[in-house]
Amino acid sequence: MWNRFRSNIGAMVGVLLLLAVILIAIFAPLLFAHSPWQMVQRPFLPPFSMDGLPLGTDTLGRDVASQLAYGARVSLLVGLVSTLVALLIGVPLGALAGFYGGYVDEGAMRFTEFFQTIPNFALAIVLVAIFEPTLASITLAIAIVSWPPVARLVRAEVMSVRKREFVDAATLAGLSKPRILVRQVLPNTVSPIIVMASLMVATAILLESSLSFLGLGDPNAMSWGYMIGAARTVIRSSWWLSFFPGIAIVITVLALNLIGEGLNDALNPHLSRKGKA
């Protein structure tokens, strides 16, 4: 499986890009002498015009490169944690619905459908707006709007695994239902969940940046979306202030998508063969 993944050029590019972003995020304090909030030079300094400030300064004279590095922390953190929370909601719900069927399924799926029909970005805005923007509320809001696809996926997987004969065999062995679900069924649904999770981190990063762009970011955290939002009004004169954070988002999200696709091909060889046939 690892070999299949490694031979996928796109996925390896994705891994390298993501590694670079992670390293920059971790070592941001070492790489940049001044904090992203600190004024270091005159405002609106274009990129490459002064040593030590490769990407110039923003509307308040702060170092754009340093802001980018610190922004990576927020993006990755929010992306990762919100995905984990979404999995914590979606996996159990989908598993129970798919395994027990009947009224449990009916109820759980109505609930999921309800959340899925709501325009998720609009719901995220409402949630963050009402609960005061903090990193925690943003993360929670993103998790709340992104768990429904997980629940649906897990339900579908569990339903298909449940029909297989080894589950009947486990029932005949006298194993209890919860034990069959946890020990026999769920391990067989892990691969698609991993694939989906990697793609969800990417979506979460996009969502977080969109919220920050609208001014719904945590005022105490530097984030890419905030940078773009703040620079929006000066786009005619200082385009680079919007441009570079956008590129950072594209690179990170692209890397995650590439990894997700690579994982998908590696974990579901049947489908990937079709893709290349």
Binding site: L206, S210, G225, I235, W239, G246, I249, V250, V253, L254
Partner: peptide
């Protein structure tokens, strides 16, 4: 497609305006 898929909507919009 992969690239568009990874691009934030609002940023693309800003760049288009630019």
């Amino acid at each position: 497609a992969l690239l568009f898929y990874a691009t934030p909507l609002y940023w693309l919009a800003l760049m288009a305006v630019l």
